[in-house]
Each structure stands twice: as structure tokens, then as C-alpha cells.
Design a protein around this nucleic acid. Sequence first.
DNA 1: GTGAAAGCGCTAACAC
DNA 2: GTGTTAGCGCTTTCAC
Lengths: 333, 333
Amino acid sequence: MSATIKDVAKAAGVSVATVSRVLNNSATVSAAATEQVNNAVKELGYSPNFLGRNLRRCETNVILAIIPSTEQTFYSEIIRGMQNSASDHGYDILLSTSNSTYSLELRLLNMLFNRTVDAAILLGTQLDYKTLMELNDKYHIALCCERAEGADVLTVSVDDEGGAYAAVNYLVKCGHKKIGMISTNITSASSFDRESGYKRALNDNGIPFREEYIYKGTYDFIDGANGLEYLKGLSDPPSAIFCVSDILAAGAVKKALSEGLKIGEDISVCGFDNISLSSMYTPEITTVEQPCYEIGRTVVDELIKNINNNEKTNKKIKLPYKLIERETVKKIL
Amino acid sequence: MSATIKDVAKAAGVSVATVSRVLNNSATVSAAATEQVNNAVKELGYSPNFLGRNLRRCETNVILAIIPSTEQTFYSEIIRGMQNSASDHGYDILLSTSNSTYSLELRLLNMLFNRTVDAAILLGTQLDYKTLMELNDKYHIALCCERAEGADVLTVSVDDEGGAYAAVNYLVKCGHKKIGMISTNITSASSFDRESGYKRALNDNGIPFREEYIYKGTYDFIDGANGLEYLKGLSDPPSAIFCVSDILAAGAVKKALSEGLKIGEDISVCGFDNISLSSMYTPEITTVEQPCYEIGRTVVDELIKNINNNEKTNKKIKLPYKLIERETVKKIL
DNA sequence: GTGAAAGCGCTAACAC
DNA sequence: GTGTTAGCGCTTTCAC
């Protein structure tokens, strides 16, 4: 139905090889032939069928990025960074959502197996380190935002431990000595690292760690609310709470507000991520910013390097965080 | 490097045709041969190369969904609906973001031209109706969430006009007679339809339409804030505001709060979309819900019908809205 | 500078 | 029930 390279060749009065050459600029072709081909292309409305090209070349120039879902605005800037880098290198980024489901994630990775994509970037994977290493052996993959314990795979993320340390340290500098934390039960290296940072900051400031000061739910808004309820219900409740994400922080703030607490006076809250929600909130949420755009660019830069050189580096890159002081943390005496 | 169907055939001691048959269940194969093939597949870790298959079949079974960005959580449920329908029909949905840019959108549509995908769904396109019609002529496309004026293309969206009518009518029933609107300058059929609904509701309630009661910015949070500032700055300011989206409503609410206004008493605000933000806000935002999941399912259902029957129906489907009463609209005397 | 032809991996007639 | 083979659209060697 639609024109093929043969049709173009016929219309231009040249061979398919010549057509291919002008289409790909792959060899010098006489000006006359070039023009004839270009005219024929225009005339026939020809677009090369990439199925043929990709099969022949054994590459697609597309990279699949698997994100849990688009419900988190957090991924938006990362994706933009990925796309810009990809575009610079002649690649396209295609997205797919896994709903954080192991089986769906595996199903999407089929695109790697069946050669439909050249590489995959996993943002918050459910896969274990063994599976990841096996994948990395045979294909090009990268982890983004979330490292996987024990997996020697190209990984780009923020400095989670350092960011958490900075946040808690800031809380201490604001006079807080009783600092709770809302984290997650879900196995996640970033949460683990943020907990480590929390503990190290406590320790460096001579504040003993209290087990009951950590609340763990899942990752949702409601867990933030539950966390606040739990922590404020303690006989000796914290005056500040460090949350492992802004969504959790927002949930905590909303709950505190609904209980008549004054944010900043009765309770300070600090989040992590700096998603757009944080500055849309009233009061605006103090948080730790991730360099999302840079994370996205970097992971694609490195991944494409791996594709081109065929020895993989499996770098683990940690990009710097930035503390964003806003309205949910205040100095106390 | 990786195994091909030939390798499997050799290892199984059968022909490539037989391998293909058991792989695709396309014809009856003896139990013995089937087992041999399956064993060989397992042994070699074989995965069919879809580049070959797709080229041969002239189809990819993937549908591209082009969204403006993942910054809007709004698309999340739509995508889930699309994926579930696609999965039911043996298709995959791949996403790409256009950043609402004409050129980037066109670049993505190349995947249609070069046969890398079987169809495309446009969520909020920048393309004009002529281009859309041309595309629809040669390829399978669908519009989702946003109809395009004059484009006879399969379209699935909420009943924008009706939803706006219901919202404004509700405002009137709450005693409001001075009702402003925050809309957008950006050409958008959904905004246009929502404005129509606003006007019809005013008219049906005997309230004269006032030009100065409509504020138009872009689509961002800040425009909601600006809209509120403008409307409340009027010599005869409205007591209620209908916003064309929840993001705009949130911006208006935050601004009102920061100016010391009491939401519900001094000013009522109603949004549109019912994104997750709306129920995370304090106060929670009254809004018009779109049946996102259903919209996603429906557009893919219909698109695949179009792919299979080769006469296109170009249906325009409007799904029902639902008014969600929350805290930003209150009864006045 | 150009063309003929092989072949990427697969499916689907077609013959048996 | 199975194998042989043509060919999907393209790129690329190899001759010329």
C-alpha cells in the first residue's frame, strides 16, 4: 500500500542502493541522482519503513524507560532530561508504566528480549539484584533514582543519604531535638539510604536514635497522615518530622492541619524530592530537592556510552541534592 | 549473537516453519515436535526477534500515546485504562511526551510513518484539524480528552460542556449570583466547551454574562493565582469562581488563602478534572470528575476496532462527568 | 558514483 | 503434520 524504497528507485530511475545512500547520507552520490531521489521521495510521500531498516541494522535507536506510573509528577523532569540527551544522540525515549508490578515490569522487558528496543531504564524497579545482573549481562539496562543493593548495574540517583543527613541536620540547627521520621515498609534502597542519613545526622548531633520515632507505611499520601497521627500520639511526641518523600510530607501536613496543629509551631515537617506539589501547598513544604533533569540526562548519556563502547562501565553515579527552605519548618527554642 | 529461529529449528531437529507454528500456535503440530521445540527454546534461551516478525506481518501491535507531559497526574488513570484495554487485545501502549510542542509532536508521529507503531493516540494535540484529517486518512489515530474543532477523527472525552454546566449550576444553587471563571488563552476545545457550559448555566438561571468575569491566562498553577487576584480586584468581585482545571483552582485557592480570604465564606472555588491534588489540598477542592479510566479504555477499544475493521467509524464519544462536592464551595445567603 | 544481490529473522503459502 | 521457499523493506558488500 504505502511506497517502498523500490518504488522510489523506480520513480527516480536509480537503484535501491542509491536511494538508500541518499536517505542515509552513507556515501557520496552525484548531485543529479540525489535530486532525482529527493524528488521521487517527495512525490510518493515516501517514508522509510523502519521495520526493515531496524531488522537489517539490528538496532532500533529507541530506549524504553519503565516508570511505576505517571501519577508521580516527580518523574516529569527526569523524563525531559532523558529525552533531551537521547535526542542529542539520535535516540528516542519511549515510556511505559509498570504500576510497580513485578510481572508487568518483566512483561515490558520483553521488548528488550525481542529486540524492539535497544536498552531499558528502570525507574524504581521491583526486580531483585540477581535478575538485574542477568539482564545487564545480556542487554543494556540502567537504574534511575533507585539503586538496587548488590546489583552491579549502571545507576544514577541523587545522594539520598547525604540529602537526608542535610535535612535532619537542618532540623537540629532549627532547635529540634525530638525528630521523628516517616518512611516506608516497601523495600527501597533510597528509603534505606535516607534512613541511614537520618540516623547519622542524629548521631553526629549527639541525639540518641529512638525506634518508636520511625513510622513506616507504604508510599501514599494517606501514610503521611497516618504517620503524623502515630507520631503525635506518642507520649513524648517529636517536634519535627523528616519524611522520605514530599507526598508523605503533604499527607502529614494535611493531617496536622485538620487536627488544628500549627505547622512550624506545633510541628515542623520536611519532605524529600521537591515535587511541584510542595510549592503549591499551603503552607509550602520544606524539602530536599533532587536534580531531576540532570539525573535524566546523565542516565541516558551513560547508557548510550555503554551501548557504543561495548564494554560496560556499570558506574554508580550520585548527584547532589539541595535543601529547599520553605514554610513547614520553623526555628524553635 | 542471540539465537534465531534457525538455531531453534536445528536444535529441535525440525524446520523453521514448525518452530514458527508452535511459537504462534498457528497450526496443529504433533506433541512430539512441540516438545522438542519448547525444549530447544528453553535450552537456547530463545526469544523471537520481533523486528523480523513485525516486518513480515506488517504490524507491531503497539500503540503510541502522545501526552503533553507527565507533570499532570491527570493522565495517570487514563493511561492505566488504555493499557488494560490494549493488553486485553494483545497490544502494548507506549508513551511519549510532546511538551505541548508542535514540532516534537510531529516528530513523534514519525513512528506512525515509519511503521514503528500501528496507531497513535493524541492527548491534547497541537495539530490543526487539517493535519489531523490527513493523518487519519492514512493512519490510525485517535484524540483523547480533547476534541479538535472540525476534525472528523475518533475522539473520546468527557462531556465538557455538561460538566461545566453542572458545576456552575451547583454554584447558583449554593446561592451564588456573581460567578467568575478562570479559563485559558490557549486554544483548546475543552476549555471552549467548558466556557459554553458556564454561559449556558448562567443563562438558564437568568444571570447575565459579564465579560470582565472571565480571566484567561495559560494553564499553570500561577495563572490560577493571577486569576483570583484579578477577579477579587474587580470593583464588583464575584463570590464564586469556576476554574477550567483543578490546577488553576488550586492556584486560586492558595492565592486566596495567602490574602487572608476564607475559602467558602469570602470566595468559593470549583475546579475541573478531580486530579489527586484536589483531595490532598487543605481545604479540599470541589470539582467535576472525569471518568479517566473509562476514557482510556474506551479510546483504545474503539481504536483497535478501527484497526481491525478497515472502515473507520470516527466516533465522537462523550463520557459522563460527576460533580464532587468538597470544601471550597459553600452555601451563601 | 552506481547497481546487483545477499541476507537481517521471521511468517505463510504451497507442496507433499 | 511437516518442510521448502519466497519475500516483508531495508542496508551493505562487492563488482564494476
